[in-house]
């Protein structure tokens, strides 16, 4: 974090007051849930907070300055969130060590994005953009990797940026909606989904584990501890999985898929 950016941000009372009011209102509204078939969808206060914040941007209450100032404060908020996740992991550390093999191996599950999203991207007619889009969940380290390898104005760079923007704007909301829904819909254990919640983004992890907790309150601490530990692992290993496995695999599969297309056309 570049600290110069932080200087004087505490004086932006308009920004802090707007956030305070938003938070109190959304927390007072509380969580709503509804069912689709056998699954439960959770609407969490953080979802309303994002929407109200976004709406505020388009009112005269928020000027360009508030919007710029808000960005570095998110990093501080995520720091507090990670401190809290740390003290939830601590007491459960023996349990987490016991579950170590599962935690480590499920990191490879992030490759599921290639298997599910890449064929659809190619099928929808996207070209090399699909490599940037589907090689990973496109958080900061992955964006950095693609920029480094292909450049920002390459098709791959545009692809990874598109998914990055989607993740930034809607990632937390999307994860919050699908996590509780899938955990109530499928026979998989909520703890498996807790581990899956840690995909390397603090807010997506909080949203996903939050909606799991709302569905399974009796194992709250275990869910958050597993999700938090998995998120830390994703943050530290995600880049290496991308470099050594995900990106080469995506490129190879992309070539295979587009080649068979060309063969068909040629035939």
């Amino acid at each position: 974090m570049s600290n110069e950016m932080l200087f004087g941000l505490w004086k932006d009372w308009r920004l802090h007051a707007l956030v305070l009011i938003t938070v109190v209102i959304t927390e007072a509204i509380g969580t709503f849930s509804f069912t689709i078939g056998p699954g439960v969808v959770m609407l969490l206060p953080m979802l309303y907070a994002l929407i109200i914040g976004l709406a505020l941007y388009f009112t005269p209450l928020v000027k360009e300055k508030q919007s710029k100032n808000a960005e570095p404060i998110i990093v501080l908020g995520v720091s507090l969130l990670l401190a809290k996740i740390g003290v939830i992991i601590g007491p459960d550390l023996p349990e987490i060590i016991a579950a170590g093999p599962a935690l480590l191996l499920q990191e490879l599950g992030n490759l599921g994005t290639i298997l599910i999203a890449l064929p659809v991207a190619v099928w929808l007619g996207l070209k090399r953009e699909s490599i940037g889009m589907t090689h990973s969940v496109a958080r900061e380290p992955n964006v950095g990797l693609i920029m480094d390898k292909f450049g920002i104005n390459s098709p791959e760079g545009r692809g990874v940026m598109a998914v990055y923007i989607f993740g930034t704007v809607f990632g937390a909301v999307f994860m919050g909606l699908i996590a509780g829904f899938l955990a109530t819909l499928t026979p998989l254990d909520p703890l498996s989904f807790a581990m899956a919640s840690g995909i390397g983004s603090g807010s997506m992890m909080a949203a996903a584990s939050g909606s799991l907790v709302a569905s399974f309150p009796e194992i709250e601490n275990q869910i958050v501890a597993f999700a938090g530990a998995s998120n830390l692992l994703s943050l530290s290993t995600g880049l290496y999985v991308s470099i050594f496995i995900a990106l080469p695999l995506t490129e190879k599969l992309y070539k295979k898929m587009t080649k068979s297309d060309e063969d068909k056309k040629a035939a």
């Binding site: 994002l50 928020v62 710029k68 908020g77 930034t168 907790v213």
Partner: peptide
């Protein structure tokens, strides 16, 4: 301190911030 009580203000700041990338 509830975990989600820390997440809500983050997303409120995030909402105001991402307005620019809308």
């Amino acid at each position: 301190i509830e975990l989600l009580a820390l997440a809500t203000p983050i997303l409120a700041y995030a909402g105001i911030s991402i307005g620019r990338s809308w």
